[in-house]
């Protein structure tokens, strides 16, 4: 196995697990499209990195962080739903990113669909540390977010600061999305946050199973997608989407079979 593929697979393992784990909460919160749209917000950051010749991932991190704060603040002030705000923000960011990239179509394609040949040892290290950190912190937040979802009043009455918890969670999703961009690109990274979770829901009657399955499906989709992409010489993003959708389709069939045989 070449060094590039090894780096990509290791990154895919951690991105897959963390995106699946964090995504399980995103889907429950009915914020699935928020995770998807957030990923597009990284595009102007990537573009600025390419234009000014620094690591585009740093630009992506910066843009995601700023967007998370702006969206969170606007939601609190205007009471408009997260999805609507992120929808507005992501189209604006996508337009800005495309304009900034100008006619550099190759860089635009890499940013949109991922490029495993660009993954370095530093990126792998960042993916491992960020994934582990994001999973551990989300583990602490998990019950609080779920309780707030069941009833915000109930959560606040238990002393949970729901607004701060949501902001921290958005930050963590931004981090995972940023490291996922390397593998699947800005256009498709949202997929890794949504599809493993909805596949896991098809087979879960309790939270523990749901969260674990979501992480496992994220891992399976990301790793098999990266390996198949390198084998067939395709961009990894679309292949990861295909492997993930296959997993989802299997869970739909299993669920359907269970319903009609019991």
């Amino acid at each position: 196995m070449s060094e590039v593929i090894l780096y990509s697979v290791v990154t895919a393992v951690f991105v897959g697990i963390s995106a699946g784990y964090l995504g399980s909460l995103m889907v429950l919160e009915k914020m699935a499209l928020v995770g998807d749209a957030l990923s597009h917000v990284a595009l102007p950051g990537l573009a600025i990195g390419i234009i000014f010749n620094f690591d585009p991932l740093i630009g992506a991190f910066a843009f995601l962080f700023i967007s998370a704060i702006v969206i969170w603040h606007l939601q609190r002030v205007t009471k408009i739903s997260f999805e609507a705000l992120v929808g507005a923000m992501f189209t604006f960011a996508l337009a800005t990113g495309i304009l900034l990239m100008g006619d550099d179509l190759e860089a635009l394609e890499e940013a949109l669909f991922g490029d495993i040949t660009q993954v370095t040892a530093m990126h792998v290290g960042a993916a491992v540390i960020i994934s582990i950190g994001a999973i551990l912190l989300t583990r602490v937040l998990y019950k609080k977010v779920v309780l707030a979802m069941i009833s915000e009043d109930l959560a606040i009455s238990k002393g949970i600061n729901v607004a701060k918890t949501n902001l921290l969670y958005l930050f963590l999703v931004s981090l995972v999305v940023a490291i996922g961009i390397q593998i699947v690109g800005t256009l498709l990274v949202g997929f890794l946050v949504i599809v493993p979770a909805i596949a896991a829901r098809n087979l879960s009657t309790n939270m523990h199973r749901y969260v674990m399955l979501s992480a496992v499906f994220g891992l399976a989709a990301a790793v098999s997608g990266v390996l198949l992409a390198s084998y067939f010489g395709q961009p990894p993003g679309p292949v990861v989407v295909f492997t993930g959708i296959t997993i989802f389709a299997v869970t739909v069939l299993v669920n359907w079979r269970k319903k009609y045989t019991t």
Binding site: V146, M149, I150, S151, D153, L154, T205, Y210
Partner: peptide
């Protein structure tokens, strides 16, 4: 204080009673 609100959202949560 123990509080029970009038409405809760549980239909979409794959959470067991024990959890």
């Amino acid at each position: 204080i123990g509080y029970v609100p009038q409405y809760v959202t549980v239909s979409d949560v794959p959470m067991s009673v024990k959890e």
